[in-house]
Structures are given as structure tokens and as C-alpha cells.
Amino acid sequence: MNLSDQIIQFLLSGFATGAIYALIGLGFSIIYNSTGIINFAQGEFVMLGGMVTMFFLTSLHLPLPAALVGAVAITTVVGVLFERLAIRPIRKPTPLNLVIITIGGSILIRGLAMLVWGKDTHAIPGFSGEEPIQLGNASLLPQHLWIFGITTLVIIVSKVFFNYTISGKAMRACAFNPRAASLIGIDVRRMVLFSFIISSAMGSMAGFIIAPLTMTSYDVGIMLGLKGFCAAIIGGMSSGLGTVFGGIILGILESLGAGLISSGYKDAVAFVILLLILFIRPQGIFKRADSERV
């Protein structure tokens, strides 16, 4: 097998991992854009998506589609409770307070998941079998197609929502200027709740589409959350294509780094990029400093 074939495989693998990072990153940026909060519990929503699906499939023996819907529903309920019980009651919502609260929330959710489902890793069967698909000398699994499909769908739906529906537009208004938005009659707190609903649902989808590939356990949220955060930062916290490209760039660089240099540096690649971007272009690589986007 020659080098160019290898590189094609590296690119494909990276693209697939990147799509997942993008989906998780979108969850970060949606909450950030409507509330100014960086929700470090986003990774736990991803974990819940996988674990609840596993629970419905193996303990309650539900069919796959029902288990997936159930996973989104339960994760969304957790997202709502999180916003109601932890975010809303804060008297002085300074960024530092909020960050500490979301980190605390993530530790709590992780701990509860460990108590409920134990510390074991669990596997979920692929949605449509596990026979690899050959593309020339590279190969993919059917699950990768699900990942591409669902990520694309989520991006399109969120684009339509934010640009063409009243609620979506209202959320963008809150992002631009919460005070002005509330003056024209938008219920800002309601929009905050909305953003948690959307991003927890998105996180849970990311969780269950990757679980057949990566397996799931109570502590997968930490690393996935950080990678998603990284994708969102590269994309300048935009809730559109910026974060998607951010995720894909990250995935591909990781894969090339592991394949061509050394796998020891795989995670280092992500964090070096993150630091570089924060130093050099804190507004993200696709964004002009002066423009505001949602």
C-alpha cells in the first residue's frame, strides 16, 4: 500500500471524526451565541445520548428508532433541568460564575451516570450493519454515512431555524443585544431555555451516532466535549459553517498527525491549534473581527 492510498484513508477517517467534532461544537456555539455562556456540560449531553440509547436498547429492549428518540427526549429534559436549576437561579451571571457552574454541572451529570450505569464501557450495534464500504483502497463503515447524513441534516435545519423562523430570529436578536431584544418584547430567558433545548438535543444526537464506532461509557464526555469546544473556537463560535469547518479541519489534522508523525501527538495537535487560534485569531479563522454572526 503506497503513501497516497494511506493519505486518502487518513483524510477519510479524519473527515468522519471531524464531522462528530463539528456536531458537538455546534452545541457549544448555539448556547454561546444566545447566552454568552460556554457550556462545559455539552460533552455530558453527548455522553447521555450514547448511554441512554444503550440503556433503552439493552435493558428495555426497545427497537432502535424508539431508543434514539427516547435518548434525545431524556437528554433534552436533562438540558432543561440544567438550565432551570443551575443557570437561571444565578443572581450575578458573570462569565466566571457561569463557567464554574457548567463545569460543576458536568461533574454532577457524569457522577450520576456512573451511579446509574456503572463504570463499564458499553457497545451499541451499528445502525445498518458493520460491513465496511470500500472506496478505492480506503474504507468506511455504514455508520460513517449516518454521521455525515445526520450532521448535514442538523446543520441545514439549524440554518433554516435561525434565519427563517420567528424563534430563531428572536434568539439571534438576543445574541446581538439582550437588552434591546427584551425592550422589543422578546423573552430573553425563554430564548436561553430554547438554546439549551436545542444544544442538548444536538449533543445527544452526536452521542448516539458515534457510540457504535467508539463505544460509550460514563466518562466519554470530557474528551469529546473538549474536542467539540476546540472545533467551535476554530470556527469563531459561529453556529453555522465556521464550526463545521473547524471540526473537520481538527479531525483531519489529528488523523494526519497520528498517521504521518506519531500518534502520541494526536491530542496535542488539537490543543496546539486551540492555543494558536486563541493567541493569533481569537475571533476564529473564518471570521472578520468586526462582524457579528450567529
Binding site: 494511506q6 484513508q9 487518513f10 479524519g14 468522519a16 467508539t214 466519554v220 498517521g259 491530542d267
Partner: peptide, 20 residues
């Protein structure tokens, strides 16, 4: 002689290298 991190979720890169 390659390694992976305990929490890694995709090792196709290392295996591709081994295949080559």
C-alpha cells in the same frame, strides 16, 4: 512501534500505517 491514548476513539490512522 506505535501507541494510542487510553481514551482514543479512532485508531484507523495507526492501523493504516501498519497496513502499509
Amino acid at each position: 512501534d506505535d501507541t494510542y491514548a487510553p481514551k482514543d476513539t479512532d485508531m484507523t490512522a495507526q492501523l493504516t500505517k501498519i497496513r502499509g
